[in-house]
C-alpha cells in the first residue's frame, strides 16, 4: 500500500520528503529482474553448493567434503585446473595485448574505420563449431596453412596445429578477441584526448604519456576486458573437445564437471567441480579489480554521455 502511494505521489513532492525514510516506489520496476536473478541464479548456485556437500555413491561415507577431497586428491581431476589456466591466462593476456593498441588508435577516426571495426568484430559470429571445423581443414596436414609453410620452405613436414593445446589456444584467441576489443574500444573512446595533449604540452615523451596518463586512465577498461575474457576462456568447453585433446592436455575443468554430471550422473560431484570453478573465477576477478584500484581511481573526464 505504502509503496503504491509513494510511487503515485506526483510532482510537488520532493524526493524522500515523506516520513524522512526511503522511498521504495522508484525501486519497484527493478523487482522483477531481481526476482529472476534470485530464482534462476542465486538459488541454483546455493542449491549446487548444498548438493556438493552431500556426496553420493562411493563417496557418501567420506563426509561433507568428500567430493572436494576426491577432486583435489585425484591427479587426473586436479590437472583439469592447470589445463584450463594454462589456456585461459595466456589467451586473455595475448588478446588484451593485441586489442589494446588497436582500440586506443581506433578511438580516433582513421580511413576505413567502419570496415576495420567490422573485420575485427565479425569473428563473433563464426561460432565455436565453424571455427573448429574450419581450423581442422585450414591447419590440417593438407590445409592451406601447411601448404603455404611447405611452399615457402619454412617447414619440411606438415606441422600439427590441431587436436592439441595449440589448436585450442588459436581457437580461443580468435573467438575471444572481438569481445575484448569492443570493451576496450568503448572505454578508450571515453577517455578525454585533451588529457594526453596536456601531458604532451607539459613535455612528456610517449613512454611517460603511456605509463603515467593513458594506461591509468584505461585501467577500468582493461580490468573489465580482462575479467570478461577470463570468464569466457576459463569456461572453455566445446573447442577443447573439437580441436583439442579432450582425453589429455586439454581436458579442461568445464569438461570435468560435465563428465561428472552427464557421463557418471553424479550431480553432487559435478556441483563440487562447478563450485571450484566459480571460486577460481571469482578470485581472479577480485585480483583484477584490486590491481585496477591500485592503478588509478578517479574520473576520466567527460566520458561519452
Amino acid at each position: 500500500m505504502q509503496r503504491a502511494a509513494g510511487a503515485r505521489v506526483g510532482p510537488g513532492t520532493a524526493p524522500r520528503a515523506r516520513r524522512g525514510g526511503l522511498r521504495w516506489g522508484p525501486l519497484v520496476p527493478i523487482a522483477p529482474a531481481l526476482l529472476v536473478v534470485l530464482v534462476l541464479f542465486v538459488y541454483p548456485f546455493a542449491y549446487g553448493l548444498a548438493l556438493s556437500l552431500h556426496p553420493i555413491g562411493a563417496l557418501a561415507r567420506g563426509g561433507m567434503l568428500a567430493n572436494y577431497a576426491a577432486f583435489f586428491g585425484t591427479p587426473w581431476e586436479r590437472a583439469s585446473i592447470w589445463n584450463t589456466l594454462r589456456l585461459a591466462v595466456p589467451v586473455s593476456a595475448l588478446d588484451l595485448a593485441l586489442a589494446l593498441p588497436l582500440a586506443y588508435r581506433l578511438r580516433r577516426p582513421l580511413p576505413g574505420q567502419r570496415l576495420i571495426t567490422a573485420l575485427l568484430v565479425i569473428p563473433m559470429t563464426l561460432g565455436t563449431v565453424l571455427l573448429a571445423e574450419g581450423m581442422i581443414e585450414f591447419f590440417g596436414p593438407a590445409g592451406w596453412a601447411n601448404k603455404a609453410l611447405l611452399a615457402l620452405h619454412l617447414v619440411r613436414m606438415p606441422v600439427q596445429f590441431v587436436h592439441n593445446y595449440t589448436g585450442v589456444f588459436i581457437s580461443l584467441a580468435i573467438a575471444d578477441f572481438p569481445a575484448v576489443f569492443l570493451v576496450l574500444l568503448g572505454y578508450a573512446s571515453g577517455v578525454d584526448p585533451r588529457l594526453e595533449q596536456a601531458a604532451r604540452t607539459l613535455g612528456a615523451g610517449w613512454w611517460a604519456r603511456l605509463r603515467r596518463v593513458t594506461l591509468p586512465l584505461l585501467a577500468p577498461g582493461i580490468a573489465a576486458a580482462a575479467a570478461l575474457s577470463f570468464v569466457a576462456t576459463f569456461s572453455v568447453f566445446p573447442s577443447a573437445v573439437l580441436v583439442g585433446e579432450p582425453a589429455g592436455s586439454t581436458r579442461v575443468i568445464a569438461l570435468a564437471a560435465w563428465q561428472a554430471a552427464y557421463e557418471q550422473f553424479d550431480y553432487p560431484r559435478a556441483s563440487a567441480i562447478a563450485m571450484v570453478m566459480a571460486a577460481i573465477e571469482l578470485v581472479f576477478v577480485a585480483l583484477v579489480l584490486a590491481a585496477r584500484n591500485r592503478a588509478y581511481r578517479g574520473p576520466t573526464i567527460g566520458g561519452r554521455g
Binding site: V37, F41, L228
Partner: peptide, 24 residues
C-alpha cells in the same frame, strides 16, 4: 551491491550454475 548482484551471472562461468539449474 544491487548492481553487482544483477551482473554477477555474467562474471561466473555458465556451467557453474548451469548444472544445478539443469537439475532443478
Amino acid at each position: 551491491p544491487l548492481l553487482l548482484l544483477l551482473v554477477l551471472p555474467m562474471l561466473v562461468p555458465p556451467i557453474t550454475y548451469g548444472i544445478p539449474l539443469a537439475a532443478m
